[in-house]
Simulated assay, not measured.
Amino acid sequence: MTDAAAVERARALLAENPVLDGHNDLPWALREKVGYDLERCDIAQDQSARLHTDLARLRAGGVGGQFWSVYVKAEYQGDKAVSATLEQVDCVHNLIARYPDELQLARTADEVEAARASGRIASLLGAEGGHSINCSLATLRGLYQLGVRYMTLTHNDNVPWADSATDEPAANGLTAFGVEVVREMNRMGMLVDLSHVAPSTMRDALRATRAPVIFSHSSSRAICDHPRNIPDDVLAALPANGGVAMATFVPKFVLQEAVEWTKAAEEALRERGLDPLGTSPEAKAVLQAYEKANPKPTATVATVADHLDHMREVAGVDHIGIGGDYDGVAFTPEGLEDVASYPNLIAELLDRGWSETDLAKLTWHNAVRVLKDAEAVARDLQRTESPSIATIEQLDGAAQ
């Protein structure tokens, strides 16, 4: 564990260069726990008994910007997925309206910087899974108009036009319509998020994109061989693309010993008819009972730092960031229990010899730069390209 002096130094660094985190699932947690009734879960109050996130802990953690995930379950399909995504977007807008002195909607890199200058937490939106657009580029544009600034191409299941990391291969990457989705995102200025997608999809997207990509919450596959992580050849391609890989804290993605334990724990949930990704009280109780009988391997701050060390070595310090995935997981690493914990990670990296300049890139500057670069590409493309009216039937034809 890092010492108190290193943590204080980390807090000082974060006061100047706060965290712009790539992924937090608070909106889904609010949907599941209180049906979006923000009176029943006031994040201006201490919510540590049921959430990883509240305003005081965001401040304590040195968070200056947050991509709020507007995730919906991959089982939600068609219009149900679109409607649920809109409800998630509405939740984020309601949070921002409810706490105007703390949160500020950010649609551009300049607005991110302006929020920081005003002392507010820049609040961006990221859609987690291409099922949210129901194979409609017009729906994709509608989400952009509502403030969504990245879309993860898949979640845990394939979409008709892209393969997921945790499903059986079907498209072997991106279909022709999948390429069109990527290119339309480039034209708008919406970041292409390659977390959750298969390596074949990652590589196809890197070939198709005209703008930098992100991984909003993925770590290194060389350090932990889980399909949700990023292979080294993809990390090595990020400098040419300009993109950013944001290391996540999820124990089952960062600690090799946790992979098999997690598979068995998820099977215990399935046997009881519960969602293996669920964070409901029932799911937590089952997991706690399983853990009591089968103590889980413990990820730590050092485990996450190992990923960042490797990602920096392969991709370069200009192409890494942080995406904690708080309120989207049942377990967190020791020392990274909630959004107040970022100083512990920065202190660990300071102890490992990371410079303050490099840490400032990790926490803030890389993420802001990738937003700016995507906006610049979009401005250029919009001079010569009109909104795409292509359909999946036109481009993928009989494959559908």
Score class of each variant (00 low, 15 high):
residue 4 A to K: 12
residue 7 V to K: 12
residue 10 A to D: 06
residue 14 L to V: 10
residue 15 A to D: 13
residue 18 P to Y: 07
residue 25 D to V: 06
residue 27 P to Y: 05
residue 29 A to I: 02
residue 33 K to H: 15
residue 33 K to C: 14
residue 36 Y to T: 05
residue 37 D to K: 00
residue 48 S to H: 13
residue 50 R to W: 15
residue 50 R to K: 13
residue 55 L to D: 06
residue 55 L to S: 04
residue 64 G to P: 06
residue 71 Y to V: 09
residue 72 V to C: 09
residue 83 S to Q: 15
residue 85 T to M: 08
residue 85 T to Q: 06
residue 86 L to S: 04
residue 91 C to M: 08
residue 91 C to G: 05
residue 94 N to P: 00
residue 94 N to G: 07
residue 99 Y to L: 04
residue 103 L to C: 09
residue 104 Q to D: 13
residue 112 V to N: 07
residue 114 A to M: 08
residue 114 A to Q: 14
residue 115 A to K: 05
residue 119 G to F: 03
residue 119 G to Q: 07
residue 126 G to W: 11
residue 130 G to Q: 02
residue 131 H to F: 01
residue 141 R to E: 10
residue 150 Y to I: 00
residue 153 L to W: 05
residue 155 H to A: 11
residue 155 H to L: 07
residue 164 S to C: 10
residue 166 T to I: 04
residue 171 A to G: 04
residue 176 A to V: 11
residue 181 V to W: 07
residue 186 N to E: 03
residue 192 V to Q: 02
residue 194 L to P: 00
residue 199 P to N: 07
residue 200 S to P: 02
residue 203 R to C: 02
residue 206 L to P: 01
residue 209 T to E: 00
residue 220 S to V: 09
residue 221 R to M: 14
residue 227 P to V: 03
residue 227 P to F: 03
residue 227 P to H: 01
residue 229 N to R: 01
residue 230 I to T: 00
residue 231 P to D: 03
residue 232 D to G: 02
residue 233 D to Y: 05
residue 235 L to R: 01
residue 246 M to C: 13
residue 246 M to K: 01
residue 257 E to V: 05
residue 258 A to G: 10
residue 259 V to N: 07
residue 259 V to R: 10
residue 264 A to G: 06
residue 274 L to T: 07
residue 277 L to C: 15
residue 281 P to Q: 09
residue 284 K to R: 14
residue 284 K to W: 13
residue 292 K to T: 15
residue 299 A to Q: 03
residue 300 T to F: 02
residue 305 A to M: 02
residue 311 M to G: 06
residue 313 E to Q: 14
residue 323 G to H: 03
residue 345 L to K: 09
residue 349 L to R: 04
residue 350 L to N: 05
residue 366 N to P: 06
residue 369 R to S: 03
residue 373 D to S: 13
residue 373 D to G: 01
residue 374 A to Q: 09
residue 378 A to Y: 05
residue 380 D to H: 14
residue 386 S to H: 14
residue 389 I to D: 15
residue 400 Q to V: 14
